[in-house]
């Protein structure tokens, strides 16, 4: 894997950003990729018309974009450095990154353990390419409604979190989730957009997300407590 990566990175240095792989042949099944996207990516990344940065950056026009190059998104230092060194999101590198993020970018903040199945990856990348106009000037697809994971009443989402209370409550979280943002084995939770944090916690509370500890922790958090945690961890991530 690493040997392969090393070779590809050498080629990339010469040929990027026009690595001419797969231009003539279909990458994969974009319709099937839409389902993979929903399952694997959509809880953190938006794509399509009106997509904005959430936990991760939006993925419109990801093809041939230099890694870490949205000025208005906070990337890990490691990803930005790789972008500076010349990492560009072409077909090969997207495959490698999605297969195992940390194989490509040590220290990436993308808390995703990777997608082993090469066919599903190909379908996913085909789907994402439909939202890129490079390298083949593929027109933007029609507007895509971006479904939320959990539908919450507007007033729940509008609750303003009590940061001080959130700090007290956060002590229960930091037994496992580190305040430093380190995410080995257990995901990082700093600096998430508050709405995403709130939606995620309600998804655990409603047992739509499968993790027993998180289901258990979220079970006894009411709407205000979830908002308080969202506010506190957002603030902590900006400090």
């Amino acid at each position: 894997m690493f040997e392969k990566l090393k070779i590809l990175l050498c080629i990339g240095a010469v040929m990027a950003p026009t690595l001419a792989l797969g231009q003539a042949t279909p990458i994969g099944d974009a319709a099937a990729g839409a389902q993979v996207y929903q399952r694997e990516c959509a809880s953190c990344h938006q794509i399509g018309e009106g997509a904005v940065h959430r936990i991760g950056p939006h993925l419109n026009r990801i093809f041939d974009r230099r890694a870490g190059s949205h000025d208005d998104f906070r990337y890990s230092e490691a990803l930005v450095r790789q972008g500076r060194d010349g990492l560009v999101w072409d077909l090969v590198r997207l495959h490698a990154y999605i297969e195992n993020p940390r194989a490509l970018v040590s220290g990436t903040r993308m808390s995703y353990r990777g997608l082993n199945d090469a066919d599903r990856r190909a379908n996913l990348i085909a789907y994402m390419r439909a939202y890129s106009d490079q390298p083949q000037n593929i027109p933007e697809a029609s507007p895509t409604a971006i479904a939320r994971e959990v539908e919450l009443p507007a007033e729940t989402l509008a609750l303003e979190g009590d940061v001080e209370y959130g700090e007290f409550l956060s002590a229960e979280c930091t037994t496992c989730h580190q305040r430093s943002g380190d995410h080995s084995g257990i995901p990082g939770i700093l600096g998430w957009p508050q709405e995403d944090f709130v939606v995620a916690m309600h998804a655990y509370k409603q047992k739509l997300r499968p993790h027993e500890v998180m289901q258990s922790v979220s079970q006894r958090l009411d709407d205000e407590e979830i908002a308080a945690l969202a506010a506190y961890f957002y603030k902590l991530g900006r400090e």
């Binding site: 930091t174 037994t175 496992c176 305040r179 430093s180 380190d182 995410h183 084995g185 257990i186």
Partner: peptide, 15 residues
Amino acid sequence: ESIGWYNGIVADIFG
């Protein structure tokens, strides 16, 4: 996850 927890709790206390 247990390794993540270990690193988390010792960081919480001693880190």
